[in-house]
Amino acid sequence: MRKNFQLPILAGLGAALFIILGVAPPAHAYLDPGAGSLILQGIIAGIAAAGVAVKIYWHRLLKIMGVRKDDDSDKK
């Protein structure tokens, strides 16, 4: 099952400020990625990652509570 990123991203827009800042490794690309594009990527990627984490823990919680049986949805 492919991960559904869109909803977690949208749901997490408001939480963007809480994403921990880090330092990216050096990139050697010849393109100018654009400062604004880099900032936005950081936000979207942070939200996507947070969304996936929430989804995984949500499924685990449902399993623990016996609402959902084992499936493949949280193995990816």
Binding site: Q6, G22, G42, I47
Partner: peptide, 23 residues
């Protein structure tokens, strides 16, 4: 480099591609 560059996890990096694909 620009002042603020975030560390982007592989999950987040993949998430950008998947989001673009869905869009």
């Amino acid at each position: 480099k620009t002042a603020k560059t975030r560390y982007i996890s592989k999950t987040g990096y993949t998430g950008i591609v998947e989001s673009l694909r869905k869009t």
